[in-house]
Write a protein that binds this DNA or RNA. Sequence first.
DNA 1: TACCGTGCCTAACGATCGTTAGTTAGGCAG
DNA 2: CTGCCTAACTAACGATCGTTAGGCACGGTA
Lengths: 196, 196
Amino acid sequence: MVETTRRQAIEDVASDLFRERGYAATSIRDIARALSVQGASLYAHVASKEDVLWGIVDRAATRFEAAADRAEAEAEARVPGDPVEALAAMVRAHVHVLTSDVGGAGVFVHEWRALGPERRSAILARRDVYERRFRAHIEDGIAIGVFAMTDSGLAASALLSALNGTATWYDPKGRLPAPRIADHLVDLSLRMLGAS
Amino acid sequence: MVETTRRQAIEDVASDLFRERGYAATSIRDIARALSVQGASLYAHVASKEDVLWGIVDRAATRFEAAADRAEAEAEARVPGDPVEALAAMVRAHVHVLTSDVGGAGVFVHEWRALGPERRSAILARRDVYERRFRAHIEDGIAIGVFAMTDSGLAASALLSALNGTATWYDPKGRLPAPRIADHLVDLSLRMLGAS
DNA sequence: TACCGTGCCTAACGATCGTTAGTTAGGCAG
DNA sequence: CTGCCTAACTAACGATCGTTAGGCACGGTA
């Protein structure tokens, strides 16, 4: 990941620190130290500490949304009107975003609570829309009988929780490369919904 | 929940605050304010802030372990040697602990990272043992053909992540009472593993 | 040469943090 | 009445927090 701007470099190291220790437990001076710089120097590039968090969270949210857009479009182009295909593509896209940017995605998943009230509810609304897209495919699948009867809301929550757990333990140098993890999680997800 | 000791009362309100804002973002004075008391007064009952967190996490961990013990024993007594029955019982027990003490269990799930190195690794070891118990039943089920072939480690992680997600959104006054949530999650879990 | 933007510095601010010390008030047992 | 236990208080400590102000060094452009 080659940083083009100084701001990007700051958000990159902050992502890792926020993910490891949490936002509140990470000080501006911690971030600066990781960049071999004085704490106050960061304020030439960012407006506030929360601003850094927002940059990370907003970028991650946008990635998830864009990946879901592409996944839905491609699934629809390949096999139109198939909820199984659509959901599989969205799961794969979600896992890909998670594993290709563990830092940012991990912060998005766990640290949005540290945002101020307005940004916090803004991101919650986007999360809600995002989760609803999964739920919609689940309901479509139930309606045409390719998924088993379930509470679609709870199923969507459980599904996304299972996927997001990846952000906690995933290690790029670990056993199982990212594509295999995605394969397995797609299988588990479809089975969980009773795909036939 | 009628508190017998003052220490219990402290841990109870701390559970809720830690769950809502996180450990690092909650001050000793925040906890004290919730008890209508001065911050320094708490030190008559607890040794340190981390001590409060440890009390909560340790108690929650013990509850999960004890519930799993009972679940395994009862499943074995009812239908001996059946991995499906055993896993279903463990899922149900896990969800019950989660929903019967959202505060404590929520802190256990999310805030163990804030512990110091020694307690942190101690709790990680216990989590590991706990997760392995789920994995063992999954592997048993695969071996005798009642569960589908899967990476048992990844399946156990995904399963527990799905269950633990409950701690984030569960509301005792919400739609769906706790027992129904448990029913649904048992169904989803077994289907996810391809139970036949 | 003069200039401007970028990146970093030191110094310091007020606030808040976890924690310690020493004290006071009430209730119950001897 | 005396004495101890419990639970709270006030006051303050040193450290660290996020943040601001003002200045210095460098590189490219006019």
